[in-house]
């Protein structure tokens, strides 16, 4: 497997600089109808993501984190409130974001290489065959899928599919990334490598990111700001700036005492919610 590049000479962007608002949620609530009953999934969420910020959403499963990404992507309309992107309300599919959903959305009838290159077949991102080949090869290298270009998704492991989906999203360099548990299915080592690689890419290309994860450590390592959600209905319970420098070295960061302190502080917020969500599930049964 090719070695991931960890050298990044580009200027760092700190979390504290004042920047213009990229994404804004204003008093957003979402109801879902299931089996005739209406369930409130998200309630009263007001959230701002400045340009180039890396924001992490953590919370127990079913707290509406993914719902928020769906709304920012323009795939779901809020029941109440408004979603803004670059100062304009999001009313249709938001083609300026790259969205990596929990379930990889590779096309099963295309090989890895054809999946990754699909963006260049679309009119809005057309590229020459040569350029496409080159970029795809570069991306396959980046996510360590060399040798699997001609495999179909069904022939790959869950982790490899995730990496292919990541490559497919990154190849057209969207200005904003929406990541829903991007590393959920990966083994621990690979997870570290890809976290570091993603950090590097985001820092170099100065992208705005919303990362949804249930892994608090991942959130603290990668994000400029962590938002803790309550269990259903999802509300914002706590927000915490993460003051670590950029570029970051995730490998080294996790052994610092400040990291442990922030981790513990956020865990104290989070653990009640996990307990509540488990209790809720028990109560439902």
């Amino acid at each position: 497997m090719p070695v991931l590049r960890l050298v990044h000479p580009e200027p760092a962007v700190g979390p504290t600089e004042a920047r213009r608002r990229k994404i804004g949620l204003e008093k957003v609530a979402v109801d879902f109808a299931t089996r005739g009953k209406t369930v409130r999934a998200v309630d009263g969420v007001t959230l701002e993501v400045p340009e180039k910020q890396f924001l992490a959403l953590v919370g127990p499963s079913g707290c509406g984190k993914s719902t928020i990404l769906n709304m920012v992507a323009g795939l779901l309309a809020p029941t109440e409130g408004t979603i803004e992107y670059d100062g304009a309300p999001v009313l249709a599919a938001n083609t300026r974001v790259g969205y990596m959903t929990q379930k990889d959305t590779l096309l099963p009838w295309r090989t890895v290489a054809d999946n990754i290159g699909i963006a260049f077949e679309l009119r809005c991102r057309k590229a020459s065959a040569g350029e496409r080949r080159e970029r795809v090869a570069e991306m396959i290298d980046l996510v360590g899928l060399g040798g699997f270009e001609r495999h179909y998704p069904a022939e790959l492991s869950g982790g490899m599919r995730k990496r292919a989906a990541l490559a497919r999203m990154l190849i057209y360099e969207p200005e904003t990334l929406l990541l829903d548990e991007p590393f959920g299915a990966l083994d621990a080592q690979l997870r570290l490598l890809l976290q570091q690689e993603l950090l590097h890419l985001v820092e170099r290309r100065q992208m705005t990111v919303i990362l949804v994860t249930h892994d608090l450590e991942e959130a603290v390592l990668m994000a400029d700001r962590v938002v803790v959600f309550t269990s259903r209905p999802g509300r914002i319970r706590a927000t915490r700036d993460i003051p670590f420098e950029r570029p970051r070295n995730a490998m080294e960061l996790r052994f610092r005492p400040e990291f442990s302190a922030i981790h513990e502080e956020l865990w104290n917020e989070l653990k009640d919610e996990f307990a509540a969500s488990i209790g809720g599930e028990r109560g439902a049964k």
Partner: peptide
């Protein structure tokens, strides 16, 4: 799969591109 349709729409695929690249295959 609606998610496949969505993922292409987010990449900027037009309705006809989605039809030929997702629905047809």
């Amino acid at each position: 799969d609606d998610e496949l349709m969505d993922s292409l729409e987010l990449m900027g695929a037009t309705a006809s591109e989605r039809f030929f690249k997702v629905v047809v295959p």
